[in-house]
Simulated scan of single mutants.
Amino acid sequence: MTHEIDSGGPTPVGRHLTDWRIRRGLGVADLATRAGVPGQLIEDLEAGEEWVDQGRVLSSLAAGLRLDPAELTGQPYMPHGPGHSTVHSLGWFARRHLARTLSADGAGGEADEARLAELAEGVRAADDDGELASAAQMVPGLLELIGPPRPEDADCRGTALRAAAHVAVSRLLRRLGYRDLAWNLLSHACPPPEAYPAVLGEEVWLLLDMGQAELAVARAVRGEADVPAEVLLPLAVAHAALGQAAESERILASAQEKAISAWQRSQVASAGAFAAAEGAAYDEVLARAEGAAGLPAGDRSALLVLTASARARLGQYEAAVADLATAESLAPLHTRLDPLARELVSVLPARAQEHADVLGGIAARLSMK
């Protein structure tokens, strides 16, 4: 399950790509036709001369092999260290909760709404702050309080709190790579109208991570006037992943107009950077990332991994290593569980040999060495 990073071999995606292509009995040209990508890209990925930093490329390769993108990235990753072991256990708790929800005796009593609100906010805040282990420790108690869906419950506050809890846990599961569990959990949210945008927004992000940009757009768009603000950003990224840059820019502009706080403007700038990455506009990635200084640590780390990859594409290897190291210092587990970070840790040593010690340390903490 571990690999040396200084062998000059392919990245994690490149290794899985070779394994699955052979397993499917496909030649490079066959897969290139199925995936709609150049055969040279596949050859370079498998040889370790290229890496993946675009969701649309990963999705296309996965679709060509009839896989979920997680099969190519290796998610969910085997636990490494106490923090990762703690968050890894969430899969078990989520499965148990879903089994109880579907069982005949799954009905629970009245939940302590104050405690439910406290835990849901605690999980969300810890996730935002990059403290995944702390967030994970609150999840078992939160799942116990959520109980089964009660769409007939007239107490909108209770159903809204349960929906917020579902979103908080689903987002955490999504980050860990448990996308099937995240989707099943969201399907039990039963949100009232005021909580629906948050649930829908998480569904769209989840579909994007699953490589389903077209479904993400279809899920989000229910008439132009009905697209809530919480959904605009993942919708913009989805359009960018589909090569619809003009529509992506239009949606980002709309989101910018609706942003009323520094945090919201930072979120828009970050989404713009991810959208630019889908079009391989790496200078634009760096320019837009400059406007995202107000992000919390968890989101900031993901953006820094993205800018590290953009800098590597531009030949700015020293700056790329610095961004990657900063991302890990801000939110260690966020960064170690990020597939793009693992791709970079595989390719940067050959390009930034003077920083081998830094990269070797990061690789060891990612259990890649």
Rank of each mutant, 00 (worst) to 15 (best):
D6G: 01
G8R: 10
P12E: 03
W20P: 00
I22W: 12
G27D: 09
A29S: 15
D30W: 07
D44K: 11
L45N: 04
E46V: 07
A47F: 01
G48E: 09
E49K: 14
E49P: 00
E50V: 01
D53C: 05
Q54R: 15
Q54N: 03
R56Q: 12
L58E: 04
S60F: 00
L61P: 00
A62W: 10
G64M: 03
G64K: 02
E71V: 03
T73R: 01
Q75F: 02
P76G: 08
P76R: 07
Y77F: 14
H80G: 00
H80N: 08
G83W: 02
H88C: 01
G91T: 10
A94R: 06
R96N: 14
L102R: 15
A104P: 00
D105E: 12
G106K: 07
G109V: 02
E110I: 08
R115Q: 15
E121H: 14
G122W: 13
V123N: 08
D129V: 00
E131S: 09
A133H: 09
A133P: 04
A135L: 06
A135V: 07
V139P: 08
E144R: 14
E144C: 00
I146G: 04
P148Q: 13
P148K: 14
R150Q: 14
P151W: 01
E152S: 13
E152M: 07
C156T: 15
C156I: 15
L161W: 14
L161V: 12
A165W: 12
A165C: 12
V167G: 08
A168R: 13
L176K: 02
R179F: 07
D180H: 11
C190E: 15
P191G: 09
E194I: 11
Y196M: 15
V199K: 10
V199I: 11
E202L: 08
E203I: 03
V204A: 08
W205A: 06
L207P: 05
M210N: 11
L215G: 09
A216I: 02
A218D: 15
L232K: 09
P234C: 08
A236F: 01
H239Y: 15
A241R: 14
G243T: 12
G243I: 10
Q244T: 09
R250P: 02
I251Y: 03
A253C: 03
A253K: 10
S254M: 13
A259N: 09
I260T: 15
I260E: 15
A262C: 00
W263Q: 15
Q267P: 00
A269N: 05
A275K: 07
A281C: 10
E284W: 00
L286I: 14
A287C: 02
A289T: 04
G291Y: 10
A293K: 11
A302T: 09
L303P: 03
A310P: 01
A310F: 01
R313F: 00
L314M: 11
Q316I: 06
A320I: 09
A320D: 04
V321N: 06
A322I: 09
D323I: 02
D323E: 11
A325Q: 11
P332E: 08
H334A: 11
L337G: 06
P339F: 08
P339C: 08
A341S: 13
L344V: 05
L344C: 02
V345A: 06
V347D: 07
A352D: 12
E354Y: 10
H355L: 13
H355Y: 12
I362G: 01
I362Q: 11
A363K: 03
A363C: 02
L366R: 06
M368C: 03
M368S: 06
